[in-house]
Design a protein around this nucleic acid. Structure first.
Lengths: 187, 187
DNA sequence: AGCACCATGTAAGTGGTTACATGATTCC
DNA sequence: GGAATCATGTAACCACTTACATGGTGCT
């Protein structure tokens, strides 16, 4: 108990500031592009937290080349910020809090026509196949051989593999489940 | 856009009232036992919503045998409630909002010792193996042959299969990822 | 008597999304 | 000029968890 219900947004932001200074806008885009399939943040969280990170000395505002045009305000992580991030990462991960709406609707499948459940599964397959294409496209750009495995690429590959094989698994499950439901409908 | 950010708790509750009248306490326990691996609700949501369901005519308070002892207040779903539940189920499921803290920590793996990431993966394997045992125990109680497949059992099996094969897949992924990280550490 | 569990509920606080406002820049 | 996108921010609102209060029941 006890260690949860703290915002992980702070650490998501610090994590993305780790590689290079970024603006709030940059951070949002970076999250969408790289970890978007298992994480998301909104501007309504990002901007206030960036401000707070500066207050707490975990990040600092960069005064960029053109102070006159105040658009694009970049932030850099501080040593204190790096330490705090590392400390969070070292804590046990929290597996709780998953919620799967598709499964819930499926679980209540007896209360609607079986076709409704089948339609949900078909929609899910379409959705997952699109994601699969995206993953495969991204995966093709990564080196497959061990020699070129830098730490960065390894961790990227690890999370990507999760998405890739997880999506394949989801499609297989959905297809099998449709088969099961069609069998039921025949009787 | 637009269809989200409505509480799904209402429908989770209605769904569990569908099979039989239950108390708030019953609902919580039923959720934990049956859909706990992909859904959860807290009393702080359940009790106020039950009250609201009655106000909206989606459920009604049962006056149980012993009105003197007011403990254990059961609720029954109404026709209006059933209709509303069915309507919700028929809407497209929302796949968004997944957040996976383990993957986020792993994604930031370059900022900590590789052992930290490996430890997280080992912990995850332990966690998932416990879940797997639970799933397998439950799975063993279900009939495997098609003849005994009632609708109820089919939908139960569908969600259970998701958990079962998903967990197996997670373990495999975690083991492979550990292998990849150990390879990296050797160099 | 004391403990575990059954059972209902509320208040406070937090994490997060959405919608809106605003304006600069780039490119056709 | 107009559209798309870059970019920053805020206010309102909501869903949800946590912690706490309260008391009954059943067992040893």
């Amino acid at each position: 108990m006890s260690n949860n219900r703290k915002s992980r947004t702070v650490y998501a932001i610090l994590g993305f500031l780790c590689s290079k200074p970024r603006s709030g806008y940059d951070i949002k885009k970076a999250i969408e592009k790289s970890v978007g399939f298992f994480w998301s943040e909104s501007y309504g969280q990002i901007y206030p937290i960036l401000k707070k990170l500066v207050e707490d000395g975990l990040a600092e505002k960069l005064q960029d080349e053109l102070p006159s045009s105040r658009k694009r305000q970049r932030y850099a992580i501080t040593d204190k910020g790096r330490k705090q991030l590392a400390h969070w990462i070292e804590q046990d991960a929290d597996y709780r809090g998953f919620r799967n709406e598709l499964l819930l609707k499926l679980f209540f499948g007896t209360t609607v026509d079986t076709e409704v459940s089948i339609r949900h599964l078909r929609d899910f397959i379409v959705h997952e196949k699109k994601r699969l294409e995206m993953f495969e496209g991204f995966h093709a750009t990564l080196p497959g051989n061990k020699e070129q495995m830098t730490p960065n690429i390894v961790f990227l590959t690890a999370t990507l593999n999760y998405g890739l094989s997880g999506t394949q698994h989801n499609i297989k499950w959905a297809e099998e489940t449709i088969g099961m439901l069609e069998e039921l409908d025949k009787q």
